[in-house]
Each structure stands twice: as structure tokens, then as C-alpha cells.
């Protein structure tokens, strides 16, 4: 077994989510590789663009179908820019899945509070989809999304749809709202009151800019949510994804191995300290 060697995968579908965000649905071409592939929401794959390199991309599709793997890609550089241009039928490399996902087993029967900031935060989309497909196994689902500017909000129809589901609440805040912005204007933590969180029943799953997560954790623990019920998905430079290259280290942890999803107590000592 060579852990660095990708498998070939084919683009089966491409969805343009916004100007800078594309979802690629990928299928491993090798039947044997496909049949042994299993993942959990929150885990990621290394996706390879020929001649350009590999990037870590969170899996957004649901584990009930492990043959078509959804990857929502934000264009941030050369590799992601190239991947976003691919069309159905094009081939890429894929290896994974890597890391630890969300604590969905532990969260069964609980309220799930998803807090996310920034653009198209893929790791939590996996959680939302997972809960929605198994709606009766979970309590209340609250989705809180913060964006800088109201124009940054993608997937507006999705939020409308999610909102229409039973026992599901959607709260959105933009630092700067535009005309006709129906949601809150201000910090994302300002809508926490409206979520009417029942601390002992709630699992929190967060991803986004660390400043936002930091403020979120502070606010939630202040409301009595236990620290070990708060999970965060972290982002660092990842090149090998198998704990060898050293780039993703966060204090004593390798984000690619012990993360990307961490229970807050694991991160607490260094969280918010610049330089880690």
C-alpha cells in the first residue's frame, strides 16, 4: 500500500454554486477502489489536478452513497482554479478519506446547532445534509450562518428549503446587509439568542474563520453549552494528509489525523493564540 498514490476518478457532475465556488461529483474509476471506499461526514479527500498538484477537499455528499463523492471547491489558487474548470468526463486523482469527521453518532437524539461563517463552508454542509436525510433521529436543527457582506451568501434557495423543514431553524447574519436583506445585520453571535439553545441537549458543529469560531465558543459556553459538546473543523496547510509532512500541525496535533474536526477541549489551550 502506497499511501501517497492517488486513484483515478471521473467527474460525473459539475455544479456552479457561485462565481468562485463549484461542486464536483467524483467517482473512482477502479471498481475495487470504489467498493472499499467508506467515509464519514467531515472527512476529506486529497484531490489531484494533473500537472498542478493536490488539495484537501471536504466531502459534502451523503455517506449513503459512497460511489459518488461530492466536493465543494472554493477557488483560492492554481489547483482549485483548475479543478473548478473541469467538466463531466474529465479525470482527476483522488485519495482518502482522511481525518476524523463529525460526532454524528454521539449527536443522535440531540439538537444540532451548526454555526458557520464565510463562503460555502463545506464541512458543515455535510452535517446539515446528513441530519436532514435522517431528520427523525435528531432533535432540533439550527443553522446559523454568518457572512461579511450580504452578497457573499450563496445557496439562498437552500436556506429557504432548509427553513421549510420541520423542527429546523435558519438564522443568517451579515456584517453589512444590502437593500432587501431579509436577515440580521450584525455579528453572527447576535442571532444566538434567537436560536433558543437548550444547552444540555445540544451538539454544536462549527466551521469558518477562527475569529468567528472563537467568539462563537465563548458565547456558547457562556450559555452553558458543555465544551465537549462543541466541535470545530480546522483548516491548516495540508500536503500529505497522512501525518507525515508536518505542515498541518496545530500544537501537538496533526490536523489531517487528529482533525480536521476537533472537540473544543482539544484545541482550547492554543485556540486564538497567533502563530499556531
Amino acid at each position: 500500500m502506497n499511501p501517497y498514490l492517488p486513484y483515478e476518478a471521473e467527474v460525473v457532475e459539475r455544479v456552479q454554486e457561485s462565481k468562485s465556488i463549484v461542486t464536483l461529483h467524483l467517482r473512482l474509476t477502479d471498481a475495487a477502489a470504489r467498493s472499499t471506499y467508506h467515509f464519514a461526514p467531515g472527512q476529506f479527500n486529497m484531490v489531484y489536478l494533473h500537472g498542478a498538484g493536490e488539495v484537501p477537499i471536504s466531502i459534502v455528499s451523503d455517506p449513503h452513497d459512497e460511489t459518488i463523492l461530492g466536493h465543494t471547491i472554493r477557488i483560492v489558487g492554481r489547483v482549485t482554479g483548475g479543478l473548478a474548470k473541469l467538466q463531466p468526463g474529465d479525470r482527476v486523482g483522488l485519495r482518502g478519506p482522511y481525518g476524523r469527521g463529525w460526532p454524528l453518532q454521539e449527536a443522535l437524539g440531540h439538537d444540532v446547532l451548526v454555526v458557520t461563517g464565510g463562503l460555502g463552508c463545506a464541512p458543515v454542509v455535510a452535517v446539515i445534509n446528513y441530519v436532514i436525510l435522517r431528520r427523525t433521529f435528531f432533535g432540533k436543527l439550527t443553522i446559523i450562518q454568518g457572512v461579511k457582506h450580504s452578497d457573499d451568501l450563496i445557496w439562498r434557495e437552500r436556506y429557504t428549503y432548509w427553513r421549510s423543514l420541520p423542527n429546523t431553524q435558519v438564522l443568517i447574519a451579515a456584517d453589512h446587509g444590502g437593500p432587501l436583506w431579509p436577515w440580521h445585520v450584525g455579528l453572527v453571535t447576535e442571532v444566538f439568542d434567537d436560536a433558543r439553545i437548550v444547552p444540555e441537549r445540544t451538539f454544536v458543529m462549527m466551521c469558518g474563520p477562527e475569529g468567528m469560531m472563537h467568539a462563537g465558543v465563548k458565547n456558547l459556553t457562556g450559555r452553558g453549552v458543555a465544551e465537549d459538546h462543541i466541535y470545530l473543523s480546522m483548516e491548516r496547510n495540508m500536503q500529505c494528509a497522512v501525518g507525515h509532512c508536518g505542515h498541518c500541525q496545530y500544537g501537538p496535533d496533526f490536523v489531517c489525523r487528529q482533525g480536521p474536526v476537533f472537540a473544543y477541549p482539544k484545541l482550547k489551550a492554543l485556540f486564538g493564540v497567533k502563530g499556531f
Partner: peptide
């Protein structure tokens, strides 16, 4: 020390 970067050379 074990850190290494991965690179692509087309």
C-alpha cells in the same frame, strides 16, 4: 525534523 513539502513538476 521530518517536515517536507510536496510539489508538482509537469
Amino acid at each position: 525534523c521530518f517536515c517536507h513539502r510536496e510539489q508538482e513538476q509537469p
